[in-house]
């Protein structure tokens, strides 16, 4: 009986503490755009449109949701956060990962002169790539005070690098492998049946010199080759 009371008290205390902490968590600004939120007001309308265009293409082509956010400073945005914590808070509050299962949020705090990256799903594998992009392609423009160009360059480079890498980096589940195997078997079966049905017919109707035409199709373009 005593034990039950203890558990009840601890549970109630935990709920109360959670409710208290939640009530105390400073509110973050609401998301205004799926891909770029410029709370610091450092981007022109053209910059915003260009960056949004690139990031939306990443979403369409790669299925990766990348979101850039600028703020004046963490203190002016919501008290009690450093840049990393705020990036994580934005990421979670705006449910970035829920839209694609592969989310990335880059928070740039202008007056704090710092940036933080939050990733989810298999996007963690791109941490290093993004850090490289930030350091090499964005910071030089930020240091020169041209945030618009830096953010645009960052988006452009990230897009090029993400497209170069494979989208899928996880492991197939057993069920997925089974389905893939069945599909391959079905495709192979279909191919062989089709081959058996059409082969005699094609052979009969094959025009003389067909091989030569095929060969010619391979003979295009020009160039030069050598050893080094």
């Amino acid at each position: 009986m005593k034990n039950k009371m203890k558990i009840l008290i601890i549970t109630a205390a935990t709920f109360l503490a959670c409710a208290f902490l939640h009530a105390d968590a400073p509110a973050l600004p609401a998301q205004t755009d799926d891909f770029i939120d410029d709370f610091a007001g450092v981007l022109t309308a053209t910059d915003r449109a260009s960056v949004s265009d690139i990031l939306s293409k990443i979403m369409t082509v790669n299925g990766q949701h990348v979101c850039f956010v600028t703020i004046s400073s963490t203190a002016e945005t919501a008290a009690g956060y450093d840049v990393e914590a705020m990036a994580a808070a934005f990421y979670s509050a705006w449910r970035i990962n829920e839209k694609s299962g592969k989310g990335m949020l880059l928070l740039i705090s202008i007056k704090d002169r710092s940036a933080a990256l939050e990733t989810g799903g298999d996007m963690g594998t791109y941490d290093r790539v993004m850090k490289e992009v930030v350091n090499k392609r964005m910071l030089p423009d930020f240091k020169a005070g041209d945030y618009g160009r830096g953010i645009y360059e960052g988006a452009r480079w990230l897009s090029a690098l993400l497209r170069e890498r494979p989208i899928f980096s996880g492991k197939f589940s057993d069920a997925a492998l089974l389905i893939l195997g069945l599909l391959l078997l079905a495709a192979a079966g279909f191919y062989f049946i089709r081959l058996a049905v059409t082969a005699p017919h094609s052979q009969k109707n094959a025009e003389p010199g067909m091989d030569k035409i095929k060969e010619k199709n391979n003979d295009f373009g020009g160039g030069a080759a050598g050893n080094w």
Binding site: G221, G222, G223, A224, N227
Partner: peptide, 25 residues
């Protein structure tokens, strides 16, 4: 096997001079 080749499609190949690819290589 330490080999290199530069290869251009018909459109560009028909416009550049004969020795251009050799120069690039």
């Amino acid at each position: 096997d330490r080999k290199f080749a530069v290869f251009g499609d018909d459109g560009i190949n028909s416009r550049v001079s004969r020795d251009f690819w050799e120069t690039v290589k």
